[in-house]
Design a protein around this nucleic acid. Structure first.
Lengths: 245, 245
DNA sequence: CGTATGGTTGACAATCCTCAATCCGGGTGG
DNA sequence: CCACCCGGATTGAGGATTGTCAACCATACG
């Protein structure tokens, strides 16, 4: 599905509205932004251009899961971040990396709007600007934590950190432990952690043989000993503050 | 020099001032912020607490050079970023990493102010908020580029990228090439690039033996072939857009 | 001129990556 | 319901890159 520029609506006409400046939760930010952009479904694997028609662009993830990726060379791909529902992606805050794209890791819905249209809206609704700032701050924290993960942690520490991240965002408490629907398939997970897929597999096997986790099929894991997992990540505290629902 | 909380002034009294909302350059942002915080000199190596008295804090680098660092363990230190004169550091945009501190890499001057005081000022002066946002955007771009450097580039590509960064920010054109006053000593450079100091030394020696660079004493390098250096960094474009004077 | 700090270089070790063979899980069709 | 098949996942052996340690050297500073 290729969406043309015409679908990038501009801001609604400014009929003398004095909308109350109430503090909105991220629950309704979607409703507001939907009025300024266009909302559409994405298939798993679908790519969304970071800058649509060469215009600074914002995506809001409504549902599903979206990743930011870049191809350095034919061999080297990397995943820079994972965006969960309710989160905003702004091309302005992205570096000019080679072949940078936004890709849906799971089917879902997104809202796309032009950054300049958003800016206009944010100038009128102060809380929108604040919410945008808050989200960029959270993302900055995550990118920084991720920086530490991929630069200085051992393979096992990286995997532990990833499981903590995923558990904090997606985990469900069960009697047996914390059930995590893994956000990424193996290859993506490896590119996210700057590890070889084989190495990742080995580490997961080791954690499994130590009884820390159990894997259920391809895309699920159960963490039996959350505290032990926390022990294995030197930046556990940073993850807890940067990843919370 | 330990500065007490009393030196963190609050905002100036609000005498009915209607300061013109002119677009200010980063040259005068220092003058404005100085009115809200306190300005002081820092020695080389001096540490500034990221959160002063447990209050969200902003630093403005007036001169010198400042780095953001974290000690993961006794053995593993890492440098997350380098801040050049005119730049703002906000603890809000920093992850809760173990032993995170702001450290002066070169003697200079900084202005410190409370984030809440800044926020009040920014609410009154729109351009201040915009300038803050712009700086956080630039930093986000740099952190993302740095992410790629330390996660996926080879040691030689990392060093080339670092020389590009430093050259773009600090380089002086000479007849023989581009003269760079290296912002960091060897150990810091290594921790910034997530390399072992010995490995870094080896790479620099190789670049020197290939005639790409010459080293002048400890802290200076001359890049003879800038184009060749660009060729060695897969993210040259991202660096050029994220690092410009 | 001597000391201290920081930089260089070599030999060796550890980690992680590469490649290839094998295995498993979840669809599909009989 | 079961056999089959395909893509993804696992695991082993070997190799490349980087880290570790130690000795030596250079530079800066008193």
């Amino acid at each position: 599905m290729q969406l043309g520029a015409s679908e990038m609506r501009s801001a609604p006409a400014e009929h003398g509205d004095a909308e109350p400046e109430t503090r909105a939760t991220s629950a309704d930010i979607g409703e507001i932004l939907a009025a300024y952009g266009c909302r559409f479904r994405v298939r798993r694997g679908q790519r969304l251009p970071a800058r649509h028609d060469d215009v600074e662009t914002i995506y809001l993830v409504r549902s599903g899961l979206v990743v930011l990726q870049s191809h350095l060379t034919e061999q080297r791909r990397l995943i820079l971040g994972i965006c969960y529902p309710g989160e905003i992606i702004s091309s302005r805050f992205m570096a000019a990396l080679p072949d940078f794209t936004v890709r849906a890791a799971r089917a879902g819905e997104v809202t796309r709007l032009r950054q300049d249209v958003f800016d206009t809206a944010a100038a009128r609704h102060g809380w929108l600007a604040l919410e945008f700032m808050r989200q960029m701050r959270v993302r900055a924290n995550r990118v920084e934590a991720h920086n530490v993960i991929v630069s200085r942690l051992t393979s096992e520490e990286r995997v532990a950190s990833f499981l903590l991240e995923a558990g904090l965002m997606l985990g469900k408490h069960l009697a047996r432990g914390i059930d995590i629907e893994l956000p990424l398939p193996r290859n993506d997970m490896a590119d996210y952690l700057a590890l070889n897929p084989d190495t990742l597999s080995r580490v997961l096997s080791r954690l499994r043989s130590e009884g820390l986790i159990t894997r259920l099929g391809r895309g699920r894991a159960i963490v039996h000993d959350w505290a032990a997992l926390e022990q294995r990540s030197p930046i556990c505290a940073a993850l807890q503050s940067a990843y919370q629902r």
